[in-house]
Computed example of a mutant assay.
Amino acid sequence: MDKMEGFLNSERERYGKLFVDINYAIDNVSPFLEKQDLSNRKYITKLPVLKKYMELLDSAERDSKKEGFFSKLFNNDKYSGLLESYKADNLDNFNQLEKCGKCACLNCTATCKFDSCLGCRPGSKIVYCDHEKINATFHDNYILNLTNDRTGAEDRYKVLATLQDCELDRKYIIIQSLMSKDEKFILYYYPGISEDNFGEISDEQEFDFIASVYESINK
């Protein structure tokens, strides 16, 4: 197996499975969802990017097989360069599709009470949903610059999860200080168009419930 063949096989194994999984999910959920609800799913709008990439892989494989030994030596880098360039140009779409492939919403046909894809940040996926009251989302590279109320100092926080309680119509955010891993906070979360706001949870029972949901899915 030459270098190009190995590259194509690796890419097809990774993205071919994702392409099949998402198409399978679309076939599964389409009969049960309204057209507008289906079109709101992120993977519906981003799937053509992946479809084009699969076609590029097939085209590169066909061309590579037609060439002789010496031609392959010169053209393999050309093909892999073109494919990597396409991926780089569509990096956000590829990353989100991989998240969609692991999202709890992928094959869900329930009448959704949550924000779902409409409230999904780039690089995020819903990891838990009970379809009635609460869901939880994990994020990649979601960092906040906030002022520590205790010290008054600016600090950077990694967002561990956001949760939505549709019964109480509330959202929550769980953050961890990058300076001190032991500093974690659970706050009310009020996402805005230009700025997000946060609030302290004073109800102990409500706080404990959110903490228990997070702990149960982060084992």
Rank of each mutant, 00 (worst) to 15 (best):
M1S: 11
K3N: 10
G6E: 14
F7Y: 15
F7E: 07
L8M: 09
S10G: 02
R12A: 07
E13W: 12
G16K: 01
I22N: 01
I22S: 01
N23E: 05
N23H: 12
I26T: 09
N28T: 15
S30E: 14
S30P: 00
K35S: 12
K35N: 09
Q36A: 15
Q36P: 00
D37M: 05
L38Q: 06
I44T: 08
P48L: 06
L50P: 07
L50F: 06
K51E: 15
K51H: 09
K51T: 10
K52W: 00
K52S: 12
Y53W: 07
D58Q: 11
K65A: 12
K65R: 13
K65I: 07
F69D: 09
F70P: 00
L73F: 13
L73Y: 05
N76K: 11
D77I: 09
D77R: 13
D77E: 12
D77V: 10
D77F: 14
K78L: 12
K78D: 08
S80F: 06
S80A: 09
G81P: 00
G81N: 11
Y86L: 05
K87E: 10
L91V: 11
D92C: 00
D92M: 09
N95A: 10
L97K: 03
L97T: 11
E98K: 13
K99M: 15
A104N: 09
C105M: 13
C105E: 05
C105F: 13
L106P: 01
N107G: 07
T111H: 14
C112Y: 03
F114T: 02
D115M: 08
C117K: 01
L118M: 08
L118N: 06
G123C: 01
S124K: 03
I126Q: 06
I126G: 00
V127G: 04
Y128D: 04
D130V: 06
D130G: 02
K133N: 12
I134T: 10
I134D: 04
A136S: 13
F138K: 07
D140P: 00
Y142F: 15
I143D: 04
L144P: 00
N145V: 10
N145T: 13
N145W: 06
N145M: 11
L146G: 01
D149V: 11
D149G: 02
R150I: 14
R150S: 12
T151I: 04
G152D: 06
G152N: 07
E154G: 15
R156C: 02
R156P: 00
Y157G: 01
Y157N: 03
Y157C: 04
K158I: 05
V159E: 02
V159C: 01
V159I: 08
L160K: 06
L163M: 15
Q164H: 07
Q164A: 08
Q164D: 08
D165V: 03
K171A: 08
I175M: 09
Q176Y: 06
Q176E: 15
L178Y: 03
M179K: 15
M179E: 15
K181P: 04
K181F: 10
L187H: 08
Y188V: 01
Y188F: 15
Y190F: 15
I193Y: 13
S194H: 14
S194R: 14
D196I: 09
D196P: 02
N197I: 04
N197Q: 11
F198P: 00
F198D: 02
F198Q: 01
F198G: 02
I201C: 10
S202R: 11
D203W: 02
D203K: 03
E204M: 07
E204L: 12
D208Q: 14
D208P: 00
S212L: 03
S216M: 09
S216V: 08
N218V: 13
K219G: 09
K219N: 11
